[in-house]
Design a protein around this nucleic acid. Structure first.
Lengths: 357, 357
DNA sequence: TTGTAAGCGTTATCAC
DNA sequence: GTGATAACGCTTACAA
């Protein structure tokens, strides 16, 4: 059965007319609430704090007025006055990469508990976009920034972060020595993956990496270490890939030209491309080709792909700890020590690797 | 081969000591830049605008000073003064659902072109969280809000949005009649899916829906319409599901108890659960069970699952148009007409449906 | 217990 | 062309 699109007809668009709301008021401020509640503006402000003396009856009157008017405090004004934005910036690569979903989830949780909001931004692994994200977050006066850094090109931005007293933690890649980091021990993960394949008798193993990410060669390093232990030449197994959507062809080509019996795919999108490449090349897993995926996902679990998995719960906790430690230090007027946390990945055996005699 | 976790050892944690940065300055303001550049603070401000005249030489001096100090304008102050935050709020269900990735991408693009930033928030389909997201966005004085609404419980919030002059567009679900929306024609999509299965000879077809989402019965409606055209009783095919992660068991149970030959899964996570259910029940696709997935993804494409797909590019454009139309209207002091845009889904035939005689 | 007023960092309106 | 200056909405001494 051939894939086929049915005819795509025009968008239907109904205009149903004016909104039924009678009048659009300006944004309501604490002054308006004060007027309605017959108190001063500062009393309204106090009603929203719980550490200050205020008559419960007054507070109730304020809250009633606020509710009636649909008042919500203006966070811009608040953060301007307080010199605290309560914003945490998250700079990730790519909304398509489901690997980050659980990180986002957990950080949102941790942030919420501390009264912080999370602002998500994406670099698409483009240094210019990374710079833009950081600039925006600095302009927002974020108190902390969690970044998956793209390249060393933006070193100046990280220096500005430090100078400005903005906590910063590198995520999953440690590109800057003087910025804290929470990373997976990729060297070890790739080593485990490669060693496992070597143990199973594979001798021609491909490992993928991103060309742009060669400043961060942890995975290939682990791969090399394993190969050397087994007396296998690692060099021609290293496949350098651009950051694109259609990697299938390149991978299929490499598979064919090297005659590899196994491949380690460096992340979830690359794993998908690898699976597509195998399919289009008519290679069966694991009979014709063995796969170990670096990074796990529910789809990989479903498909029985052996994978390097990470303790996501722990990762989220470590990131939050590391970040808030820095934020608290800056809050106390001290310079935080930087720290690097390295988290151990583990190999989850499923059914995508064949034993070779 | 049985799935098996290798031993997870302790996290390694290096503390490498004090940051090398000598001193942490306070956040730098335009005053500081002014002082260094030997101009007044208002001149610094002017240097960042291009609609006012300023001596290019002065501007350069300002910019040099700004660069030297690592100055970035404070957006809180700016939005307070301008009464424009240039923030767009996006309220989605779930970071795990890859369906939204391309929407996020495109909206970021559109927003960027207009000088807006996107703030992402997630409801997890929980009305309380939806309320919290909206409150936060109002407090942030977002100029526009794009929401996938959860339930009618938060009607008051939408009224406040309108009263406050904040543009609002419902995404993918239209729960409020007086709020604009950009939706996929789910009635039609489900109708197409069901009709296709009926055409292929299936008579016992399950369609899934979320229990919490019964206020928005478009998909089941389309399913019913198709069934009725074929003289099939639709009622016992409707499977109502909680919003959870482990739906496999429920789905497997329903498959077994109804003896269905086909299933329409209502979104990507449910499709995954369905595939897992089939696997654990030992059902082969499409021989034992046919599947049409509502919403498409790269993984479904890879696995050859027939799916209801949406023109994501167009959806992104329509959303942006609809939103900015409202924002511009509010900007002109007029009340925007609300509008409902309905986008046609299409059926993408792959290999997950069997023809029954 | 509540009101008054200063000031957070901007931009816009005036003078000069 | 550039420099004072008055808001924007909020928090927080300090007064009352």
């Amino acid at each position: 059965m051939q894939a086929k699109k049915l005819l795509f007809e025009d968008t239907v668009c109904y205009n149903i007319g004016k909104s039924s709301v009678s009048e659009v008021n300006k944004m309501v401020s604490s002054r308006d609430v004060a007027r309605l509640a017959n108190v001063s503006q500062s009393t309204v402000s106090r009603a929203y704090r719980d550490d200050v003396y205020i008559d419960p009856i007054t507070r109730q009157r304020v809250m009633d007025a606020a509710k009636q008017l649909g008042y919500y405090p203006n966070l811009s004004a608040r953060s301007l006055r307080n010199q605290r934005s309560r914003i945490l910036g998250l700079v990730l690569s790519d909304p398509d990469n489901t690997f980050f979903a659980s990180v986002i989830r957990q950080l949102e949780q941790h942030a919420g508990e501390r009264g912080y909001r999370l602002v998500l931004t994406y670099t698409d692994e483009d240094p210019d976009k990374e710079r833009f994200c950081l600039e925006t977050l600095i302009s927002s006066r974020a108190e902390g920034v969690l970044v998956m850094p793209v390249s060393r090109a933006n070193e100046d931005m990280y220096r500005i972060l430090q100078k400005s007293g903005i906590a910063a933690v590198q995520l999953f890649r440690s590109l800057y020595d003087d910025v804290s980091s929470v990373c997976v021990n990729d060297e070890q993960g790739a080593y485990q993956a490669a060693k496992y394949l070597l143990d199973q008798g594979h001798r021609r193993i491909i490992i993928t990496e991103y060309t742009f990410n060669q400043e961060n060669p942890a995975k290939t390093k682990g791969y090399r270490r394993a190969c050397e232990e087994y007396g296998v030449d690692p060099e021609e197994g290293i496949l350098s890939l651009p950051f694109e959507n259609n990697l299938d062809g390149i991978i299929a080509g490499a598979l064919a030209s090297t005659g590899a019996t196994a491949i380690i795919s460096a992340n979830i999108p690359i794993t998908l491309a690898t699976l597509k490449a195998c399919k289009s090349s008519g290679l069966t897993i694991p009979d014709d080709i063995s796969i170990v995926a670096y990074d796990d996902s529910q789809w990989l679990e479903f498909q029985g792909i052996t994978a390097i998995t990470h303790p996501m719960q722990q990762i989220g906790d470590e990131i939050a700890q590391s970040l808030f430690r820095e934020i608290d230090a800056y809050g106390d007027g001290t310079t935080p020590e930087r720290e690097n946390r390295l988290i151990k990945p583990y190999l989850l055996l499923r059914n995508s690797v064949k034993k070779i005699q």
